[in-house]
Simulated scan of single mutants.
Amino acid sequence: MMNIVLLEPEMPSNTGNIGRTCVATNTRLHLIEPLGFKLNEKALKRAGLDYWDKLDVSIYSDYQDFLEKNPQAAGNMYFATTKAHKVYSDVIYSPDCYLMFGKESAGIPEEILVENEEHCIRIPMWGDIRSLNLSNSAAIVLYEALRQNGFEKMELAGELHHLSWNSQI
């Protein structure tokens, strides 16, 4: 199972969107405090729609608490940052890797990034934009990791609502 790790997320709508993506992909969500919102906030639930109760989520008091409770993350975690040398699509993700994203206003602290330089990844961007939205970034990297692992057990074909497809592909 893939894992998304949010370090001190600040915006409930981003966390709600990421939670919904986690439910849709059978991905575990890890939230590292302090959070910039309460877990019962309407904005969080609204962004996650009616999926929040289906979410596999764990909450940690701080980064050290997360590491202690998830020793398997060591060496199997990737850190999303605009400062990385590697592009997110240049690494090979295991089916149980951890993808960490920092808080919206500051990202992952540099002390953590320096300790994990080989596992830092970035999403290429054009021009002078500072960064992408957190929930968009999480979805981009998560879906690359899922693609590399064959979208294991995910629905790959769907039916139309009212009409039928004309051809068989």
Score class of each variant (00 low, 15 high):
residue 43 A to N: 13
residue 127 G to D: 07
residue 38 K to Y: 03
residue 24 A to G: 15
residue 73 A to P: 10
residue 57 V to L: 08
residue 148 Q to C: 04
residue 153 K to H: 14
residue 162 H to A: 14
residue 137 S to D: 01
residue 166 N to V: 12
residue 84 A to P: 06
residue 121 I to Q: 01
residue 84 A to D: 05
residue 9 P to H: 02
residue 55 L to M: 12
residue 54 K to P: 08
residue 124 P to T: 13
residue 62 D to Q: 09
residue 8 E to D: 00
residue 15 T to V: 10
residue 50 D to Q: 03
residue 141 V to S: 01
residue 108 I to L: 12
residue 49 L to K: 03
residue 28 R to A: 15
residue 62 D to N: 15
residue 150 G to P: 11
residue 7 L to I: 09
residue 137 S to A: 13
residue 14 N to C: 08
residue 61 S to Y: 00
residue 27 T to M: 11
residue 20 R to L: 12
residue 58 S to F: 13
residue 90 D to A: 11
residue 89 S to T: 13
residue 6 L to Q: 04
residue 33 E to R: 11
residue 146 L to I: 06
residue 76 N to F: 05
residue 133 N to L: 09
residue 21 T to P: 01
residue 68 E to L: 12
residue 164 S to I: 08
residue 80 A to R: 06
residue 26 N to L: 11
residue 141 V to K: 00
residue 158 G to V: 13
residue 151 F to S: 10
residue 143 Y to W: 04
residue 97 C to T: 03
residue 143 Y to H: 04
residue 129 I to Y: 02
residue 47 A to E: 03
residue 83 K to Q: 11
residue 55 L to H: 07
residue 14 N to T: 06
residue 166 N to F: 14
residue 7 L to A: 03
residue 145 A to F: 02
residue 121 I to W: 03
residue 164 S to H: 15
residue 54 K to A: 11
residue 41 E to P: 07
residue 18 I to T: 02
residue 147 R to W: 03
residue 73 A to Y: 07
residue 45 K to H: 11
residue 109 P to L: 07
residue 116 N to K: 04
residue 129 I to L: 07
residue 127 G to F: 04
residue 126 W to E: 15
residue 96 D to P: 04
residue 126 W to N: 13
residue 125 M to E: 09
residue 65 D to T: 06
residue 39 L to M: 15
residue 88 Y to D: 03
residue 30 H to V: 10
residue 62 D to F: 05
residue 78 Y to V: 04
residue 55 L to Y: 09
residue 79 F to C: 08
residue 116 N to W: 01
residue 16 G to P: 03
residue 72 Q to L: 13
residue 86 K to W: 03
residue 46 R to K: 15
residue 63 Y to A: 08
residue 165 W to M: 14
residue 27 T to E: 13
residue 113 L to Y: 09
residue 73 A to W: 07
residue 109 P to M: 08
residue 109 P to I: 05
residue 108 I to P: 03
residue 18 I to Q: 02
residue 37 F to D: 03
residue 3 N to L: 02
residue 119 H to A: 08
residue 61 S to M: 04
residue 149 N to Q: 11
residue 3 N to S: 06
residue 6 L to V: 07
residue 82 T to K: 14
residue 130 R to T: 09
residue 64 Q to D: 13
residue 167 S to W: 12
residue 58 S to H: 14
residue 115 E to C: 06
residue 51 Y to N: 08
residue 108 I to Y: 10
residue 13 S to M: 08
residue 30 H to C: 10
residue 72 Q to C: 05
residue 105 S to R: 10
residue 164 S to D: 14
residue 72 Q to F: 10
residue 81 T to V: 06
residue 82 T to M: 08
residue 164 S to M: 12
residue 160 L to I: 05
residue 48 G to L: 02
residue 32 I to N: 10
residue 94 S to F: 00
residue 157 A to Q: 15
residue 20 R to Y: 09
residue 7 L to T: 04
residue 29 L to S: 12
residue 140 I to T: 04
residue 75 G to S: 04
residue 92 I to K: 06
residue 105 S to Q: 05
residue 8 E to W: 01
residue 92 I to N: 07
residue 167 S to C: 09
residue 149 N to D: 09
residue 50 D to T: 05
residue 109 P to C: 06
residue 80 A to D: 03
residue 17 N to Q: 02
residue 96 D to E: 11
residue 66 F to S: 02
residue 71 P to L: 10
residue 94 S to V: 01
residue 97 C to L: 05
residue 4 I to N: 00
residue 51 Y to E: 07
residue 35 L to S: 02
